[in-house]
Amino acid sequence: MTEVQLLQTIGMSVVGLGGAILLFVKARFVRVMAFVAIVLGAFSLVALSVPQMASMPPAVEKIDVASIKEKKELAAIGQKIFFGKGQCALCHTIGSSEGRCPDLKGVGAKLTREFIYESLTQPQAYVYKDYEHVGQAKFFPAKMPYINKKPIGLNNNEILAVIAFLQSMSGEEVTINLSELAAPGPAGSGGRKDL
């Protein structure tokens, strides 16, 4: 018996029991509760008759710096970090004014990689004063966090991957050389399983 069949059987038993109470029991309170049970049983049966689908967590991905052979792959990893662990996309957008912070479209072409690196690790060192938010100002008090410190805490390789992604997103040549990537340490600094 599958789980669905088991639940269906339970649902039908509840409805049946409720029906029997309505037929044989006179006490008002019990009757009302039986009525409630019938309604709930019927609801479960309807829910069991629509397509059943559980949502599984995705397969765990491991990133191994040593296996990267192309800059394209590095940019692809950077894309995952940008929208995932790096939490960049919580504020920044690429090509939309909907974000709360500067839009990063074409940023890889506008800024040098050194500047981007500094912006990520020393966010308050140089702040564009002429940055204007497009559209209505939004009140989400947040300032750029240190990306290489807690709670986000990307390591050097991951930051380089993000820069590679930003450059390739802007249609630029990726200037990160694969040789710059630090070999993964014994603790596996190159990738984390919850990436």
Binding site: I10, S44, L48, P51
Partner: peptide, 8 residues
């Protein structure tokens, strides 16, 4: 979990 289980 799937909807049926959740509904129960």
């Amino acid at each position: 979990p799937a909807l049926g289980y959740a509904a129960a």
